[in-house]
């Protein structure tokens, strides 16, 4: 899962089907889907959101959604 990556680590998304439907759609709008490479930029404290970078754009998502995104480290 994305949340297991540490700040600065990269991963490739393999499955986002468990993420809630609305969030999936919005991520798709931003070009993030299965096969996208993401890099964790920073992690907010107290279970706050995670900032990820993909194709040069930065996006904030919540931890609970990040938990449901399966990734493999690259």
């Amino acid at each position: 899962m994305v949340s297991s990556l540490k700040a600065g680590e990269k991963g490739k998304i393999v499955d986002i089907s468990h993420v809630s439907h609305l969030v999936q759609r919005r991520l798709l709008d931003l070009g993030i889907t299965e096969g996208s490479e993401v890099c964790v930029k920073c992690v907010m404290p107290f279970g706050g959101p995670i900032m990820i970078e993909s194709c040069g754009q930065c996006i904030g998502i919540r931890r609970k959604e990040a938990v449901q995104m399966e990734v493999v480290k690259v």
Binding site: L22, L27, L30, P49, M51, C58, I59, I61
Partner: peptide, 11 residues
């Protein structure tokens, strides 16, 4: 029940 938070962080 549903909440959506995906935000683009512009440069």
């Amino acid at each position: 029940e549903t909440s959506l938070f995906v935000i683009e962080l512009p440069p």
